[in-house]
């Protein structure tokens, strides 16, 4: 049974955004994917980002992770203003601080589980050994399997291992269970929780499955490019207890 951690004292911010907007197109075809979002991500917290399709969750996550830049607004990582960073600086930021988990896993099909993890490990000076990262997500026995030989849940756990191998300060997960059934999805969430507990990795999980919000410290709900509500859970529900 996972340990329940209380969200007691306020923690240091790792990311803070002010007035983020993201506009696609112009004139009649203009789409405001983000419309003045203020946001923070604190060290060690698990944050669930809820909202229907098109509410701006993915856009926000992409900007937070340095994959995309906002139209206006500022984003700080500590003292560094990411909204002014060059492409190289953003790459550096991703490499050193961010781990991504995608809905469709995005493993490199020509590399084994171990090699997919190593792909990330190669980028940093003191990575977690791929074997260890895979053990964290419960795949210590499937090191040399290619993605095509793994189930969807296993592939997603490899993706998580790949994300944590760099020992990032934050994990950004975009619908990590979106393509999985409930049972497999719970396994993946267990893996995310394990990482959070073991390494204190701040974890933002995008989902439109509201149930997942119960395992987070904080739940932010988005609608039409704005933050519609925000609540702090008094306690985190273990993934095994989630019901969907």
């Amino acid at each position: 049974m996972a340990v329940v951690v209380m969200a007691a004292e306020p923690r240091a911010e790792i990311l803070s955004a002010r007035g983020l907007t993201k506009v696609y197109g112009a004139g009649a075809t203009e789409v405001r994917a983000l419309d003045g979002v203020d946001f923070t991500l604190a060290r060690g917290e698990i944050l669930a980002l809820l909202g229907p399709s098109g509410s701006g969750k993915s856009t926000l996550l992409n900007i937070l992770g340095g994959l995309d830049t906002p139209t206006t607004g500022t984003l700080h990582h500590g003292a560094q203003e990411l909204t002014r960073a060059t492409d190289d600086e953003l790459t550096r930021f991703r490499r050193d601080h961010v781990g991504f988990v995608f809905q469709f896993y995005n493993l490199v099909p020509s590399l084994t589980a171990r090699e997919n993890v190593q792909l990330a490990a190669d980028l940093v000076a003191a990575p977690m050994p791929p074997e260890e990262a895979l053990a964290v997500v419960g795949l210590g026995a499937r090191l040399d399997h290619f993605p095509a030989q793994l189930s969807g849940g296993e592939q997603q756990r490899v993706a998580i291992a790949r994300a944590i191998a760099k020992r990032p300060a934050m994990l950004l997960c975009d619908e990590p269970t979106g393509a999985l059934d409930g049972k497999t999805g719970r396994l993946v969430l267990e893996a995310l929780l394990a990482v959070n507990q073991r390494f204190g990795t701040a974890t933002a999980i995008i989902t439109h499955n509201a149930v997942i919000g119960a395992m987070a410290d904080r739940v932010v709900t988005m609608r039409d490019g704005r933050i519609a509500s925000e609540r702090v859970n008094p306690s985190r529900t273990p993934p095994a207890a989630l019901d969907w």
Partner: peptide, 14 residues
């Protein structure tokens, strides 16, 4: 494309 994009997301430089 997607694989290369993942590499970029992981932090591989251009």
């Amino acid at each position: 494309r997607e694989q290369l994009a993942v590499l970029r997301a992981l932090g591989y430089t251009k």
